[in-house]
Amino acid sequence: MRPLLLASAAALALGLGGTALTFAQSAPQRRGPPLQDAASFSSIPNQQARSAALFGEIGKVLTHPRCMNCHPATERPRQTDARRLHQPVVVRGKDGHGAPGLECATCHGKQNYDPARMPGDGHWALAPASMAWEGKTLGQICLQLKDQSRNGGRDLAAIVKHVTTDTLVLWGWNPGPGREPAPGTNAQFGALMQAWADSGAACPAS
């Protein structure tokens, strides 16, 4: 039970200080951890190595709690920066939108509701099981991301478009108070994805 204890402890630490509303009004929108620009990888001469290195940087976003929490390996998403299991218990359901009686939209509206720290988006949902990232290596996630049989039939261009225009992906950089945003900016992330695609979309070895 020890890992669980620690995870819970971390989750609790988030609750420190005041009410939800205090957070909403006094905490400015945080920036996530830094992300290197795509250009900073141009010094890697070998294209495949460069591409894989770019995906390494992309991986900082994909494995961030804002993204990983809703790409679970099980039927249950996680929540908070500590990535604890979602409370209440919600599941993917037949279409990624939850179970009858307790769908995502029961709580998650079309946009964030900051007074209650409730995140929202027009199509708040879990990623399909075929896109589960939890517990996988970056190399595995990379292969999965490119695999059109698992990624919703998207080619590289469609993937780049998806991650730069989809509102739920963009939410990762605007997650509301009490949550660390995804690393860098979405523009940086989009540029990294584009550079990765342009350089042959190589995957890291592990």
Binding site: A11, L12, A13, L14, G15, L16, G17, G18, T19, A20, Q87, P88, V89
Partner: peptide
């Protein structure tokens, strides 16, 4: 309910976990 330097850490049912 955990106190951190005298302040309660748990503020709502998201951290004061209740039986479901």
């Amino acid at each position: 309910i955990t106190l951190d330097a005298g302040k309660p850490v748990q503020t709502n049912f998201d951290s004061y976990r209740s039986l479901r």
